[in-house]
Design a protein around this nucleic acid. Sequence first.
DNA 1: TTTT
DNA 2: TTTT
Lengths: 136, 136, 136, 136
Amino acid sequence: MSNFRNHVQLIGNVGEDPKITLLDGGRKVARFPMATNEYYTNNQGEKIQNTDWHQVVAWGKTADILEKYTAKGSEIGVQGKIKTRSYTTEDGNQRFVTEIVADEVLLMGSKAAQEASEPKTPRSKSTKKTSAKKDA
Amino acid sequence: MSNFRNHVQLIGNVGEDPKITLLDGGRKVARFPMATNEYYTNNQGEKIQNTDWHQVVAWGKTADILEKYTAKGSEIGVQGKIKTRSYTTEDGNQRFVTEIVADEVLLMGSKAAQEASEPKTPRSKSTKKTSAKKDA
Amino acid sequence: MSNFRNHVQLIGNVGEDPKITLLDGGRKVARFPMATNEYYTNNQGEKIQNTDWHQVVAWGKTADILEKYTAKGSEIGVQGKIKTRSYTTEDGNQRFVTEIVADEVLLMGSKAAQEASEPKTPRSKSTKKTSAKKDA
Amino acid sequence: MSNFRNHVQLIGNVGEDPKITLLDGGRKVARFPMATNEYYTNNQGEKIQNTDWHQVVAWGKTADILEKYTAKGSEIGVQGKIKTRSYTTEDGNQRFVTEIVADEVLLMGSKAAQEASEPKTPRSKSTKKTSAKKDA
DNA sequence: TTTT
DNA sequence: TTTT
């Protein structure tokens, strides 16, 4: 229900190898810059590339996937939400950082996607999976 | 990872009370028609409303929410994927039905949303929740 | 082609009346803060509301709609892209601002939507329009 | 304003060369089947690929891009809306077809995207264009 | 700070 | 078969 009201999707390239941090509770965090490119032809007929940079953060399983399957340059997709944090600088000023908190990662190319395929974690736990959804 | 490649979002009205079915394993299914409306002014300056109808299916927890909080006429949002099933008619012909398999429901209006708020089911199970994500 | 790689959707409330600016060329800009709310029940069973704030910018026709139909408190949806601008402070430091550049606005409630319905092909004015897209 | 309430995104492969039709008014239509794949590991630890098929239709400029840059097997993304049409068979029965009406196409790989980059404000031709949107 |  |  959360991601409906605050939903972001980016498709582009990992700008640096994801920086992995292990928190006290054993929870993993991945952080990296990501570039999205837009291509268009301007009024003078020149082909223009416009790049936007984003700070991406991911937790838990999503951080695992990023750690294992992505590196600087990887083409990926990311879904998540926008979050602006504030912090105080040493000299007492307030600053803001806007980050994309990713909860899904798409590895471009089906090979990578297949390798990274994880056991599903369905909403409700059924020991025996009915095939109702599958044969739909 | 699934919903990136096949992703649908509808905002509109429930056309009939969701029909709830309990499957053998205790799993719940909700089915209902949903209308999405588009408004525009045509070339003659007339205001036009164009309605599209969709067959929505939801499972488990999402079906619970639909059962409890929606009825004919409810304004909701739905996120999920498109799935076309085929079946064979009595006289041996193949037919297709396209359904929206919903995995998220948005109840319009914040009151409904608050009532329906469920315990989070985070990707990885931590007994003690760090507040790391909160203050991000 | 642009909004695929850098795509944001927010549903929430206008935090302040949109501030309208007219640029030299006659082009209009609207700026306003927007809140998105997330509702969930925490481990202690408490209902929590978590609010994120976003700076939204809109141009041209989208700014027109915002000016006419929204005010502080309005419930709206916004689609667009994320853009981080940098600027230099008076004392020579570089700062970053992340904004949501909106290209679509959704007025919640069908009444508002109908009132605001504009001739299609909205970005630029074309006198004559085929209805080919309608009969798809 | 339309695509907010009825919005689809597919990332996958073109199943057949797009079939191009020219309508009376000179307007172009492209039609093709598109596959989206989902990868996951089932309870038995087997890697499963699940494929969904979609009928995609595109008009005008979007059809142009599909005609020029895609063929059977191309990896593309598509954004648009869901539309269910009904028609009557020769023997007088009503049938339904659900199609994805695409208004954006994403060519995977930045090379293709750059080649296909078109002048902005694509829906209709405007001679003069301000660059106001760029400096947002 | 990415990619072609 | 919804909503205003």
